[in-house]
Each structure stands twice: as C-alpha cells, then as structure tokens.
Amino acid sequence: MTQIPSALILRKELQELMRDPVEGFSAGLADDSDLYEWDVTVMGPPDTYYEGGLFRARLSFPRDYPDKPPVLRFKSEMYHPNVYPNGLVCISILHAPGEDENGYEDASERWNPVQNIRTVMLSVISMMSSPNDESPANVDAAKEWRDNRDSFRRRVSQVVRRSQEE
C-alpha cells in the first residue's frame, strides 16, 4: 500500500517532535489510525496572562499538506483576540498561501510549504504572548484587551483556572 506524501511528511514531523520536543506544547495523534488529526496541549507562556494554563486543541491537516495549512481549534475555552469564540485560531501562518483578498496580510506572512508543526505551534505561543487586536477574530476580546486590561486579565485568569481543571 502506498502512502500519500502528506502522510509521510506528518509521520516524520511527529517522530521529530517526539525525539526533540518543543517547550510550550505537546502533540500526538488523536487516534492512532489517523495521521491527519492531532491532539495538542499548549502551555500558557510564562510572564503572560495565560501562564499556568493547559489548553487542549485539535490540529487538523488537509490531505494536501504541506501545500495547504492545518486548522487549529482550541477545545479548551480560550479568550483571546485572535481566537474565534468557537476556538478556531486566526493567525496569518494558518491562512491559505497567496495574496490576502482583504489586503490585511502580505503573502509572506501566510502559510507556505516550508512551515511545519513546530513553526505553527511557536506562532501560537507567540500569539498568546502578544495578541494582535488590529484584525481580531474575537472582537469583544480585542476591545477589552485595548480598553480594559484589568478586566481582560481577570477574564483570562478564569479561563486559565478552568483549563487546569480539565
């Protein structure tokens, strides 16, 4: 039985992450029979509002990976300007390659096939450290981030506590 190239690439990336883990997240297959669905745990980065949190997420890969980006959706509650209320992460590296039809991003900021799981997860950790409120996925979180940091911090503290109880 021949495997499609994306399966070979994903297997290799998973093996590399097991051999050389990256601080701040862990990843593994959601089901041993499916290389295209991964469970991920993102640790809230130190010195951020998310510190101490253990946020569960699902990383779903298209069959034409790495030509197309994966989709990352938090399963744990997440309150962040760049995460939709349904948990879907909205950052440039996860946007389809090419020009942005809305003109918000340069093509160089978007997905390209040299990206990998490691760069995606490091971008998510960076996102948690430095929210981008310029083009928010969660408008309420972005407004609170801009206008009332104390309220934002309190709300995120509740989310962090709940993530620790999951």
Rank of each mutant, 00 (worst) to 15 (best):
T2K: 11
Q3S: 12
I4A: 03
S6V: 06
L8K: 14
L8A: 09
R11F: 02
R11L: 06
R11V: 11
E13A: 04
L14H: 11
L14M: 13
L17M: 08
L17W: 05
L17T: 09
M18L: 14
M18S: 13
V22A: 08
G24Q: 07
S26A: 12
S26Y: 07
G28I: 09
G28F: 09
A30G: 04
A30F: 00
D32E: 15
D34Y: 14
D34Q: 07
L35K: 06
Y36T: 08
Y36L: 08
E37S: 14
W38R: 00
W38C: 02
T41K: 11
T41C: 14
V42S: 13
M43T: 11
P45A: 03
P46R: 07
P46M: 07
T48A: 00
Y50K: 00
G52Y: 14
L54W: 06
L54M: 14
R56C: 12
R56A: 15
R56Y: 12
R58D: 03
R58M: 05
R58H: 04
P62R: 05
R63A: 10
R63T: 08
D64C: 04
P66E: 02
K68L: 13
K68C: 12
V71I: 01
R73K: 15
F74Q: 10
K75Y: 13
E77F: 13
P81S: 02
N82G: 05
V83R: 01
Y84N: 01
N86H: 02
C90P: 04
I91K: 03
I93L: 03
L94F: 01
H95G: 02
H95S: 00
A96S: 13
A96H: 11
A96V: 13
P97R: 08
G98W: 09
E101R: 13
N102Q: 10
Y104D: 12
E105S: 01
A107Y: 12
A107T: 11
E109D: 08
R110A: 06
W111I: 10
N112P: 00
P113K: 15
P113W: 08
V114G: 02
Q115Y: 06
I117H: 04
M121R: 01
M121S: 07
L122K: 11
S123W: 10
V124A: 05
I125G: 09
S126E: 11
M127P: 06
P131Q: 02
P131Y: 09
D133R: 10
E134Q: 11
P136E: 03
P136K: 07
A137H: 02
V139F: 05
A142N: 06
K143C: 06
K143P: 00
K143F: 04
W145T: 03
W145H: 06
N148K: 07
N148R: 09
N148P: 01
D150V: 09
D150N: 12
R153T: 07
R155I: 05
R155F: 02
V160Y: 10
V160P: 10
R161A: 10
S163P: 03
S163N: 03
E165T: 14
E165P: 02
E166F: 14
E166Y: 15
E166L: 15
E166S: 14
